[in-house]
Nucleic acid binder design. Structure first.
Lengths: 238, 238
DNA sequence: CATTCGATCAATCAGGAATTGGTTAGACCA
DNA sequence: TGGTCTAACCAATTCCTGATTGATCGAATG
C-alpha cells in the first residue's frame, strides 16, 4: 500500500535513467487501472516519484511508444489503448473525404439498403415512399424536388428496419450535404419537370413493394449510376 | 420594413386566437430567415406581437406541427426543417440498437468492405493485415486476441481505401463495443489457442491479396456467420 | 372556465479560470 | 562541451458559474 516508490530517488546517477522508467512501471502496476486509467498529471507524478519532469517524460514516452499508455494535451495521461478518434464527427469526416468518395460510398451502401428494404419494409414504409414520389412530381422548384428526393432515399433506408444501418445512412447523408455545400449549383432556376429519376424511383419503390430483393438493389444501383453519370458531365449536384 | 406587426393587438377577442398565428406568420415572412433562421425568444416575441405567451406558444405549436419551424430547450426557435439528430452520436445510436442489429449490419457492411479491399488494397495494407494475423496467433490472453482481431477487421476496412466508408465502419465498431459492453463475458480465462477464426482470417487476407473480389466478400461473410453462429449458442461475445 | 401571469425546471450556451501535456530558454553542473 | 534541471510559456481541454431559453405547473383574474 504505502510501498516506497520515491525511496529510490537517491540511486546512482548512472541508473537514474532506468530508475524513472522502473518507478513509473511500478507505479502503474500498483495502480488499479480498471477503476481509473488516468495517471496523475506530470507535475505531480514527477514530484511523487522524485524525478525531474524531463526524465519522467522520457519514461512516459517509452511506455507510450510501447502502446501501454496514451497522452493528450489538456486531458491527461491514461493507461491502456488510445481510443480511436471520434470518427463520428461529421466535420472531421467531411474534411477528409471528397465528392467522388461520397458517390462511391452511396453506390455501395444504398443498393444494399434497398435490398434490405425489400425484405423488411412495412406497408407504412411503402406508403411513405409513395408519398415522396407524388410530392417530388408536384415540386415547383428544384429545391423542393431535392428535398423530396432526399426524403425518398431516407424512406428507403428507414424501410430497411435497421436503426443502426439507418444511423450510418444519416451520417453518410450529412457528410454528403456538408461536402456538396461548398459547390455552386448553376441551374437553380430549372424545376425539372419530367426527369429520368422519376421512373427510376418508381422502379425502386415497386421492386420493394413486390419484395423483389435483386430488383430493388439493381434499381437503386442503376439510379445512382445515372445520377453519377449526369453529374460527371456537369459537376453540380451530387 | 417597419410594417406594423403589433397593430392588430386590439382586434376582437373572437379573432385573437387567429391573430397570434397570423401575426407570427407575418413576422416570419417579414424576417430574413436565410440570414438568421433563429426567432427571438418567446418572452420577447410575445411582447413584440402583443400577445400572451400561452397564445404565442399555441401559434408556435401549429407552425411546428406544420414543419415550418422547430424548437429546442436552451437553444431557441428556428425557422426551417429540424436538423436531423446528430446520428453520429454514438451513445444515441447505441441506445437505439441491439446486438442482433449490430451483427446483421456487420454481415451487410464488412463483406462489402472486404470486396473493396480486394480491389484497392496496397501492399502496406496487406502487410498490416498479415501482422494482425501473426499477433493474434501469438496472443496469450483472450483480451489480446480480441484486440488483434479488431485490428484485423479494421485493417481490412482501411484497405478499402475509402475514408468515408472507413469512418462508417469505425462508427459501427464503436457502437458495437458500446452495445456489447453491458454484457458479461463468461469464459475470459480461455486464451483460445487454435480457434477456427484463424483459418477464416487467413482466407480473407489471401483473397484480398489475390484480388479475388468475390472470394474476399464470401470469406468475410462466412467468417461473420461463423462468429454469429458461435455466439448464438452461448451469448457472450459479439 | 379559459386566460394570463409568475415562478420554477432542465437543457443549453457563453465566458473565464484552472488544468495539463508539449515546448523552449537559460541556469547549472560535471 | 554536453547533459540535466528549472522555470516559464503555449495550446488544448476541462470545469465551473451565470445567463438564456423552451417547457411546465399553479395561483390569480375576469
Amino acid at each position: 500500500m504505502d510501498k516506497p516508490i520515491a525511496d529510490f530517488g537517491d540511486s546512482t546517477d548512472r541508473q537514474s535513467a532506468h530508475s524513472a522508467l522502473t518507478q513509473l512501471r511500478a507505479f502503474i502496476a500498483q495502480k488499479d487501472v480498471d477503476a481509473d486509467p488516468r495517471l496523475p498529471p506530470e507535475r505531480e507524478l514527477c514530484d511523487s516519484l522524485g524525478v525531474s519532469r524531463g526524465e519522467l517524460r522520457k519514461a512516459l514516452a517509452v511506455l507510450e511508444a510501447e502502446g501501454h499508455l496514451w497522452r493528450h494535451v489538456g486531458k491527461g495521461t491514461f493507461v491502456g489503448q488510445r481510443p480511436l478518434e471520434d470518427s463520428a464527427d461529421i466535420s472531421t469526416l467531411a474534411s477528409q473525404t471528397n465528392p467522388s468518395e461520397v458517390m462511391r460510398t452511396r453506390l455501395l451502401l444504398e443498393p444494399l439498403l434497398a435490398r434490405e428494404a425489400a425484405m423488411n419494409a412495412t406497408s407504412g414504409d411503402i406508403e411513405e415512399m409513395r408519398l415522396c414520389l407524388r410530392r417530388s412530381r408536384q415540386a415547383e422548384t428544384w429545391r423542393q424536388y431535392e428535398n423530396w428526393d432526399n426524403h425518398f432515399h431516407r424512406a428507403v433506408a428507414q424501410a430497411a428496419r435497421n436503426t443502426l444501418l439507418l444511423g450510418l445512412f444519416d451520417t453518410l447523408n450529412t457528410v454528403r450535404r456538408a461536402v456538396v455545400w461548398g459547390r455552386l449549383r448553376p441551374n437553380l432556376k430549372a424545376p425539372s419537370p419530367d426527369h429520368h429519376s422519376f421512373a427510376e424511383h418508381e422502379a425502386i419503390a415497386t421492386a420493394i413493394e413486390n419484395r423483389d430483393l435483386d430488383g430493388a438493389s439493381r434499381g437503386m444501383r442503376q439510379h445512382l449510376e445515372s445520377v453519377a453519370r449526369k453529374l460527371e458531365n456537369r459537376g453540380d449536384e451530387l
